[in-house]
Nucleic acid binder design. Sequence first.
DNA 1: CGGTGGATTCTCT
DNA 2: GAGAATCCACCGA
Length: 190
Amino acid sequence: MSGHLGTLLEGPVEEAAPGLLGRCLVSEIGGLRTGVVITEVEAYGGDGDPASHAFGGPTPRNAVMFGPPGRLYVYRAYGIHWCMNVVVGPEGTAAAVLLRGGRPVEGRPIMEGRRGRTDHLTDGPGKLCRAMGVTGEHDGVSLFDDVVRFESRPREEGMILATPRIGISKATERRWRFVLAAGDVLAAGD
DNA sequence: CGGTGGATTCTCT
DNA sequence: GAGAATCCACCGA
């Protein structure tokens, strides 16, 4: 499994999603650098996924999902929070991996400042965006060379659990949520 | 063109 | 565990 990020993102979203676990995502926003190791993701799109924002065709909101892989798709959830996805699959198709959580590895004080607390900094999609400074204005940026990008350092290893996706009402039977259980944690599965 | 309902999080009970 | 906060894309009329 793999290696090259570009190659990974051209493949099926249900394979790309777990392949993003353990990778280091960094942001340089507002002159501040933060970084996390991705520990929780969900796959959306793929072949006729009714839970995907792209189900039903292109709209202004989901346009980036239809573009080339490796870009960031950011949307607003519940009118309050931002959530970020990695666009996957060939241009013209619409699939993305929702980044649901990570473990802070760089710029922790910056994240604490943005979150207004010192715990639970990045353990949810909205929290992750807030901590890293990602907002709607970053919709469409390239994850290879822009202000939000993946570091080309070795992935962290761990056991990968597959579970149903969270917070959706359709296609709940697909186990397209992937969690990186770092070594010891097994209790999180369901 | 108005109503509706989230790929959530926080606070309070 | 329940409920509020709070915006806008989407759908039906």
